[in-house]
Design a protein around this nucleic acid. Structure first.
Length: 746
DNA sequence: CTGTCCTTTGTTTTT
DNA sequence: CAAAGGACAG
């Protein structure tokens, strides 16, 4: 390098390892970047450095995990080197763009629709109805859909999937898969998985296609490589076959998407795949206090299937990490709200400094009401929930059908909204006709007079709808927001909402008006953008893409969504057995390890303060049930402070007369409360403390008599207890429903 | 065909 | 406790 780093902002303020990674030019590079190790800085600088060294922006491809991350990276690079337009996107957006550009390679029209999960489910149901194999009815569309998704992630076509040795589900799914794919094709639509599957397969099998793209993308950079799946892996490999200039960045300890097909081996085997790879480890953390880092490191070190490594920091010790115990979820939410309010009032922090992480979306409800009650500004970072409202989805269905007249799913959604007298039966006739003539539903509707059995109101409605779409199609090139305006007007949708006496329709009307604003903003950012772009952005948006970090509010999100972010003060809610780790991961060690990584990801987001919360009673599906602190809490180092903030703990200090034995020894030892106690809850719960139901305990059941508990599993209403009775064999009960008398504790 | 009321059903995480 | 699906009357 000829430039002096002191004068070059691209190389300024970097550690030797970071500078090494930034300046690496040719050949494969693996950057193992621990949490908070300045990864974002390194990758943006690296791209900037490549450009500075004369690499053409056109030849660079950077893959990020979210569109938001892509946007940020674009801006940072633009700040360093203005005017360079590098291709930065997620794998899915990349796939979509390639597929539109080379639509003919994929046997698609370039205005294809990308189906989301809802759409996918509908197509699966249609395919399951159409398939003739016996046994389909044994599976839910959901399970079939997952099986198909897995097949696509492994680059298996319906044929290949069928030929593969399969269990019963796989056999059935492979048949549905073939029809499902045919239906998608007919609708000129693809699903999320296709955006990876199709380009990956094309790269693998079509050498010309591969050469073209490989030659174009001479330098590839992939972030969050630990969470890539097989299809993404193939894309990465085949795009960098000639140049070998592939740089991947990741942290095996933060791999949290195995359930979605991610394969941690992709990163672990990088050096095997690219024998000449240079490996740089970034193990210095700049984000968190020593306390936080130590707590997180101690937890993650419990994972057996893991390369040993540690993170170090020069940051101060800071506040101790705290485990907080509350009476109930309501109480947990309320006390956290107060803590936040107090800290903001005393000017120790702003609202934007706080983040609340949860394992499941359902847990945001209570915290949301507590924030509303306490007047705390907040944002729930959950996708573009706005676009998922019924009224907006309806309007978007019109748009999708305009752009892609073959889109049958959107047709079915829009055709009778507002009501045009078209019911289920008419649509079945229409589908039959469309099937018979191999045309789309819209085209069939345009020829409704030729369809037998559709008469009267329904026929008139269909004809009118087809004509409406025909008229609207004239405006397809108009600005997105103007098209929406037109759709609202001419479809009668706006009139329907306006004339309604349902008070909620007023809000719906406001929402669709806001949809126009959203489209206008989208267009104003870039006048080249089309309706197709607008629709694509909405469909491919990730949860954090809707997050507005500029606002001064508390951020509430899932642990998954928190990946890659950082906040001064972090609360993780419901760190309870069955929630984190999640009940459905408890069977397999490798699944529990992923839950531990998830907890690790959440903890390492915190810069200054970290609170891990649990409550004694958790409200769930309208019921209140005893909750057990997460086993992860017992894996934290000693200096973590444990505070029992439950009212019952204060009140019960002098109370005796119920159980005297804490359910877990480590719990008893670790929590600061003075005397061991299992308190009767202030809320109504089942007759038997489900905490006391543990394997080995001898119990008596009214009808079955004496038995011994074999197994207890599940959480909340799903918690089951399996009992072996002396005379009646094994029986399984719902833990909070069954009445049992404890005879002999284990 | 449409709207309403009632039963059933279900909950991990998401591009 | 909700949302979603099914049954039924208008």
């Amino acid at each position: 390098m000829t430039e002096l780093s002191a004068n070059n902002p691209i190389l300024a303020d970097l550690t030797p390892e970071q500078a090494d990674a930034v300046q690496h030019m040719e050949g494969p590079l693996l950057i193992l970047a621990g949490a908070g190790s300045g990864k974002t800085r390194v990758i943006t600088r690296r791209v900037a450095h490549l450009l500075q060294q004369g690499v053409k922006p056109y030849n660079v491809l950077a893959i990020t995990f979210t569109n938001k991350a892509a946007q940020e990276m674009r801006q940072r690079i633009d700040t360093l080197l203005p005017g360079n337009r590098v291709w930065i996107s997620t794998f899915h957006s990349f796939g979509a763009r390639i597929m539109r550009q080379y639509a003919e390679h994929f046997d698609l029209d370039k205005n294809f629709t990308i189906y989301d999960m809802d759409d996918r489910l509908k197509v699966i149901k249609i395919a399951m109805d159409a398939v003739t194999v016996p046994g389909v009815e044994k599976f839910t569309p959901d399970r079939i859909g997952n099986a198909i998704s897995r097949a696509k992630n492994q680059l298996l076509t319906p044929d290949a999937f069928y030929r593969q040795e399969n269990d019963f589900l796989g056999q059935i799914a492979s048949h549905v898969y073939a029809i499902y794919q045919k239906k998608l094709k007919e609708a000129n639509a693809v699903d999320f998985d296709d955006l990876l599957f199709m380009p990956a397969l094309a790269l693998q099998t079509n050498e010309d296609f591969r050469n073209t793209l490989d030659a174009r993308f001479k330098y590839i950079l992939i972030d969050e490589y630990q969470d890539t799946n097989q299809a993404q892996y193939i894309m990465a490999r085949f795009l960098s076959k000639a140049s070998q200039n592939i740089c991947v960045v990741g942290d095996p300890d933060q791999s949290i998407y195995k359930w979605r097909g991610s394969d941690i081996r992709n990163i672990l085997d990088f050096e095997r795949d690219f024998p000449k790879a240079k490996v740089i480890t970034l193990d210095r953390n700049y984000r968190s206090t020593k306390s936080i880092l130590h707590a997180a490191s101690t937890l993650i070190s419990r994972n057996k299937n893991r390369k040993k490594k540690g993170l170090i920091t020069d940051n101060p010790e800071g506040e101790a990490v705290k485990v907080l115990t509350f009476d109930s979820g309501l109480d947990e939410a309320d006390q956290i709200a107060r803590q936040i309010k107090d800290k903001v009032a005393s000017e120790k922090a702003s609202y934007r400094d706080f983040a609340i992480f949860v394992r499941m979306n359902a847990l945001t409800r209570t915290i949301e009401s507590a924030f509303i009650k306490n007047g705390i500004p907040y944002q729930i970072v959950k996708g573009l929930a706005f676009f998922e409202r019924k009224e907006n989805k309806d309007i978007l269905a019109y748009l999708r059908l305009l752009v892609n007249p073959q889109d049958n799913i959107s047709f079915l959604r829009a055709v009778n909204e507002p009501a045009r007298g078209i019911g289920k039966v008419s649509l079945e006739h229409l589908s039959g006709f469309a099937e018979q003539h191999q045309i789309g539903l819209l085209r069939a509707a345009a020829n409704v007079e030729k369809v037998p059995n559709i008469k009267g109101k329904a026929a008139k409605g269909l004809k009118e709808f087809a004509q409406l779409m025909h008229v609207l199609r004239e405006h397809i090139e108009d600005k997105p927001h103007e098209v929406i305006q037109l759709v609202l007007e001419q479809s009668g949708y706006r009139a329907m909402l306006k004339d309604s006496r349902d008070p909620e329709d007023e809000e719906r009307l406001a929402n669709v008006e806001e949809l126009i604003t959203a489209a206008m903003q989208f267009y104003n950012e870039d006048g080249e953008r089309t309706i197709t772009d607008f629709l694509e952005q909405i469909t491919l948006a990730s949860d954090v893409d809707g997050w507005d970090e500029k606002q001064d509010h508390v951020s509430v999100m899932t642990l998954h969504a928190s990946k890659g972010l950082e906040f001064p003060i972090v609360y993780i809610l419901a760190v309870e057995e069955g929630i984190l780790p999640h009940e459905r991961s408890l069977q397999k060690d490798e699944d529990i390890e992923e839950e531990r990584r998830l907890a690790y990801v959440g903890m390492t987001r915190a810069m200054r303060e970290l609170f891990l919360c649990n409550s004694k009673v958790r409200e769930f599906r309208g019921q209140s049930l005893y909750a057990i602190p997460s086993s992860f809490l017992g894996e934290l180092p000693e200096e973590v402070q444990r505070q029992d903030l439950s009212i019952s703990s204060q009140r019960m200090a002098s109370y005796s007369g119920f159980g005297t034995k804490a359910p877990f020894d480590w719990n008893k030892a670790a929590f600061t409360s003075s005397s061991a106690k299992v308190s009767p809850s202030p809320v109504q719960v089942g007759d038997t403390l489900s905490e006391e139901l543990r394997p080995g305990t001898i119990v008596q059941h009214e009808g079955y008599g004496i038995g011994q508990i074999l197994d207890v599993n599940g959480f909340g209403a799903l918690r089951k207890v399996k009992i072996r009775f002396a005379t009646q064999g094994d029986k399984t009960f719902v833990a909070d429903k069954v009445k049992l008398k404890i005879v002999n504790k284990k």
